[in-house]
């Protein structure tokens, strides 16, 4: 092993051990506060964590030693499995803290069913009178998902070429473009569509247009990523062959790259529309219009029979979309 490499590994190991034990003591202090209402100062947590972490690392007993520096001889005898016990401890304590944070209450789950009686009976007695209104809202949802997908396709298609490592030359310009497109796509994708919907419902007002914009942004980002990964997986042979004929860069892309990606692109796009229809419902909840917004309103008015019909309609659409998109993708595979 190289020297600096070992130094780096040791540093990672020490930091891991310190965080490991600070976390354990942090959990312990939370539980003490939760059960006995005795607040523990955070300085205590840090001091104890650092102390135990350091000692176990120096003695060669720690988890991080086992993970990062397995070649280093660890101590023998009973305490040699100390790392195993600490892993057990951290899992146990995480579970206990989780149980308390989430307020798991099995008693409520098994005894308070009658509270859900209203919604349950609503589901089984849906109000057919508002069917037309619901279908209108549903159409809004489906069309907004469709438009979001259709608008996203050309942009993502073009961007994906600039986000594909194998197409961008390793020059300063090529690297810069690649990194910028990649980073923007990653950042935009990591922001949930629901957050975009909140932003756009303020920007253009509550309604399907806000939902469409939210889904579009999210679709562009995630299709760019999926598409560009597809480009990175193409067979480089034909691209090289087209290049060798004296073709220009654009011709190389159109004749060497596009034919290889067109059918996976279609599959991804249909899959995306499928996802967008589902998300359009959720996005509606926060101001994106469509059936989601209607569902939210009826739920707040406690009109359970209206909620019932909406739930049935959403389920039907999701089911049909799922089936259609699976079928189409299957057909594309055969192409």
């Amino acid at each position: 092993m190289k020297k600096e490499n070992k130094f780096k590994l040791s540093l990672q190991a020490i930091l891991t051990d310190l965080l490991f034990w600070i976390y354990i003591f942090g959990c312990v202090s939370f539980l003490i506060n939760h059960w006995f209402e005795k607040p523990i100062p955070s300085s205590f947590v840090v001091i104890f964590g650092v102390a135990v972490g350091l000692i176990s690392f120096i003695l060669g007993l720690s988890v991080a030693r086992k993970v990062f520096l397995p070649t280093i001889r660890t101590a023998k005898k009973w305490y040699k499995s100390f790392w195993g016990w600490s892993v057990f401890l951290i899992l146990l304590i995480t579970f206990v803290v989780g149980w308390n944070l989430v307020e798991v209450d099995l008693y409520k789950l098994f005894t308070k069913f009658q509270n859900a009686g209203g919604i349950m009976s609503g589901i089984f007695n849906p109000n057919m009178d508002i069917l037309i209104i619901c279908l209108t809202a549903l159409a809004e949802t489906i069309y907004l998902a469709l438009l979001a997908t259709v608008f996203a396709i050309p942009l993502a298609f073009i961007l994906s070429f600039f986000a594909a490592r194998n197409l961008m030359p390793r020059t300063f310009l090529g690297n810069t473009v690649y990194i910028i497109v990649r980073t923007i796509a990653t950042v935009f994708r990591s922001i949930e569509a629901i957050v975009w919907a909140i932003i756009f419902s303020v920007w253009v007002g509550i309604g399907p247009f806000a939902g469409m914009l939210a889904l579009m942004i999210h679709s562009i980002a995630s299709l760019t990523k999926l598409y560009s990964e597809q480009i990175e997986n193409i067979d480089p042979g034909p691209v090289e062959a087209i290049k060798a004929t004296g073709a220009s860069t654009l011709q190389i892309w159109i004749f060497g790259v596009v034919p290889q990606i067109i059918s996976p692109y279609l599959a991804f796009t249909i899959y995306r529309w499928d996802i967008n229809v589902r998300m359009a419902t959720i996005v509606g909840f926060v101001g994106g219009g469509g059936i989601g917004l209607l569902l939210l309103q009826q739920q707040q008015l406690l009109r359970w029979q209206n909620v019932g019909i909406i739930i049935w309609l959403i389920a039907a659409v999701v089911w049909i979309m799922d089936m259609v998109s699976a079928k189409v993708r299957e057909k594309l595979q055969e192409m």
Binding site: D235, G237, P238, E240, A241, I242, A244, T245, G256, Q260
Partner: peptide
């Protein structure tokens, strides 16, 4: 012109 071992045609 160039000829390759793997033919390098666009298969579809």
């Amino acid at each position: 012109a160039m000829i390759f071992q793997q033919f390098n045609l666009i298969k579809n």
